[in-house]
Amino acid sequence: MIEAIRKLVDEHGRMPVPAASLKPDQDLYAAGLTSFATVQLMLAIEEHFDIEFPERMLNRRSFASLSAIAACFNEIEPARLAS
């Protein structure tokens, strides 16, 4: 999961550093993720995993690190499969 997100971060996150160098809990904003790129990354994740981020997840905390993004996914995915 984290690896798949890493790949999307590389493609859409416009980060000054390669995603491979990011630890799962490292602060993405401090590492250079901008709010513009957050939106692009979010759209890419929605498209790739065929999910939709609910409004309540559209905040800084949800995208603060690779593992935070994975946690959002893990919360959305079971709900999606159940519906």
């Binding site: 409004e55 309540r56 559209l58 905040n59 800084r60 905390r61």
Partner: peptide, 8 residues
Amino acid sequence: SDELTSVG
């Protein structure tokens, strides 16, 4: 803080 940092 979630509201303060939200897109909305």
